[in-house]
Amino acid sequence: MKDKDVILEIINLKKYYGTIRGVEDVSLKLKCGEIYGFIGPNGSGKSTTLRTIMSLINKTSGTILINGKELEKNNLEQKKLIGYLPSEICLYDDLTVKEMLDFHESFYEQNISKRRKELVKLLKLDDTKKVEDLSLGNSKKLGIILALMHSPKILILDEPTSGLDPIMQNIFYKLLLEEKKKGTTILYSTHILSEVSKICDRIGLIKEGKIIKEDNVENIVKNNITYLTIESEDIEKIKKDLDLNIISSHDNIVKFVNNLNPNVLLKKINKYKIKKLLIEEVSIEDLFIEYYK
């Protein structure tokens, strides 16, 4: 990746809350127009990383660069480049949606009302309602509009689809892909792995505050690992011969995690009497579970 393409870079980010680990060592490079899936279980350091980028919390060490310049807490030009949707969106309950959008708009010099209207229409949000009366899904929609309406170059989304119905989720995915086409870089933190394979270009898996795997979605999913299920009377011999990780075993049926080349596999099992043979592709969810075991 050429450095001139990189819009957001995190180098050896570390964050400790006293003695409690938030993030141990996170390094990321996001280029323009890329959607980066940031995946990890609860407490792995996803939100801490995002909140550090947003300068809500102070890093213990490490560097965050926006367009090659170190992130500064009070740099308004850098702030204008970023759109942020927190996982739990809390807005001003006393305002109506329209007033909330007006309030947001008042902070930007450029005219953003056209984009605002487009987003309100696209996400079908009633702007006469009070913020406190919005359902979880509609609050999320409002949060999405607020994050997007100033057309940021970097979008930081923390579990953005929680609360959205499937139809709205699809509209949202389309919206993100349009943003990507315009050159917006998206850091997408989520637990929902199916959406990662739908929209992300690259994935970073974070575990206990460290990135443990980073690759293109295709490479991660198609990494020659399959599930192999065999039913045979010679199952004990096959187990010894293949020497693969066993997921489940009952009667004469065994399910393996297979990383053997298909030709090698067929050669090895050819000598046994096989009753049933099933080879399945590993889903991203299965991979996720494998990595976090």
Partner: peptide, 16 residues
């Protein structure tokens, strides 16, 4: 306390 700071801080406005 109301957790609105996460939104307010994302706006182009200095803490001061």
């Amino acid at each position: 306390s109301d957790k609105t700071i996460e939104y307010l801080n994302s706006l182009p406005i200095k803490r001061s």
